[in-house]
């Protein structure tokens, strides 16, 4: 039975708006919808360029349109997503605002699909508190008259120049069987590699194929790898902060050449080894979490060796070999 893991990509993007989109967003805080002139057309929503030719448009040519408009095409959203502007069923529609040459896409809130038709007249329902975002219009509603939802906090105090965009996507990926085998074996303090039957190279980390011969490696190619090795190379990272960062102090990542093999485990964490004592040639041994610990995917090798939490000094004398440092892969 294949195991699936979920991970979410969530990031708060900050977008700069430039002169035209900025003016449009600022207009929204004033309950005004702006388009931009291109020849005898009024482009809504406005762009810095003509959408057909790419010609630069003059930000001084921005004009107010609407607030009411006519539905040109619509569709009903019976089950809104978390990204949609309304939490209950609604319509997405192309709305040609009065005075505009092109339609604006937005939500129309009518309660039921039978209230909608091409040609229907709609007007914006404004959010009471507006920040300069397309969502300052909650939705359009039937009729000619704009509405404001709740107390009106008025326009922005300064021109709007930036916009937040928060996207969250959850991905559900199968865990390749080899990774599950490796994880389970790591509970018993085993490090499993895979030997390519064609070229005999041994791969760590549950890759599942040999990139040289482009062949898949299955369970029959599994081999046990030793638990001791030598640091061949390393880096010490001074963490910078970013959303999701978990580190605050400089941390080491080392490359371990396993004894009697050609196998390097790259970018490994260390245990009980201060960053100042990390060096090429240092002898290390695998450090394991207790077998019953529930190890997440943050362990060494991105979870492949779940219970292998890192490498601990073995106390043996250093290996003196000038070629060691070149063993990166």
């Amino acid at each position: 039975m294949t195991r699936f893991v979920e991970n979410s990509i969530v990031f708060p993007y900050k977008r700069s708006l430039g002169p035209v989109i900025g003016a449009f967003m600022t207009g929204l805080t004033e309950q005004r919808i702006l388009g931009i002139r291109s020849g005898d057309q009024v482009i809504v929503p406005p762009l810095e360029w003509d959408p057909q030719t790419g010609a630069e448009l003059d930000p001084d040519g921005m004009v107010e349109v609407g607030p009411a408009g006519t539905v040109e095409s619509w569709t009903w959203v019976p089950a809104p997503s978390e990204q949609h502007p309304l939490g209950h069923p609604f319509a997405f529609a192309f709305i040609r605002l009065d005075g505009a040459s092109t339609p604006l896409l937005h939500a129309v809130d009518t309660g039921a699909p039978d209230a909608l038709r091409v040609g229907a007249r709609v007007a914006p329902r404004w959010r009471g508190s507006r920040v300069g975002h397309i969502g300052d219009i909650i939705a359009f509603v039937p009729g000619e008259q704009p509405e404001v939802d709740g107390p009106d906090s008025g326009p922005a105090e300064a021109p709007v120049t930036m916009m937040d965009y928060n996207a969250s996507i959850t991905y559900r990926n199968p865990v390749p069987p080899v990774l599950d085998r490796l994880r389970e074996a790591s509970r018993d303090q085993r490090i499993i590699g895979q030997r390519c039957p064609v070229c005999e190279r041994v791969y760590s980390g549950g890759r599942g194929y040999c990139p040289i011969d482009a062949v898949e490696l299955g369970e029959e190619q599994d081999v046990d790898l030793p638990h001791t090795g030598t640091i061949t190379n390393f880096t010490i990272v001074t963490p910078v902060q970013y959303p999701g960062q978990t580190e605050t102090e400089p941390f080491a990542r080392v490359f371990v050449l396993l004894d009697g093999t050609d196998v390097i485990l790259p970018y490994q964490p260390v245990v009980e080894l201060p960053v100042g004592e990390v060096r090429v040639g240092k002898r290390v041994a695998a450090a394991w979490a207790p077998p019953n610990d529930d190890i997440d995917d943050a362990g060494a090798m991105g979870g492949a060796y779940g219970h292998l939490i890192g490498w601990i000094p073995s106390g043996e004398p250093d290996v003196e070999d000038p070629d060691l440092v070149n063993r990166i892969f």
């Binding site: 990204q83 939500a107 916009m163």
Partner: peptide
């Protein structure tokens, strides 16, 4: 990214 993505326009 300004007018359509923030509405979840799919």
């Amino acid at each position: 990214p300004f007018y359509l993505a923030p509405l979840g326009a799919d």
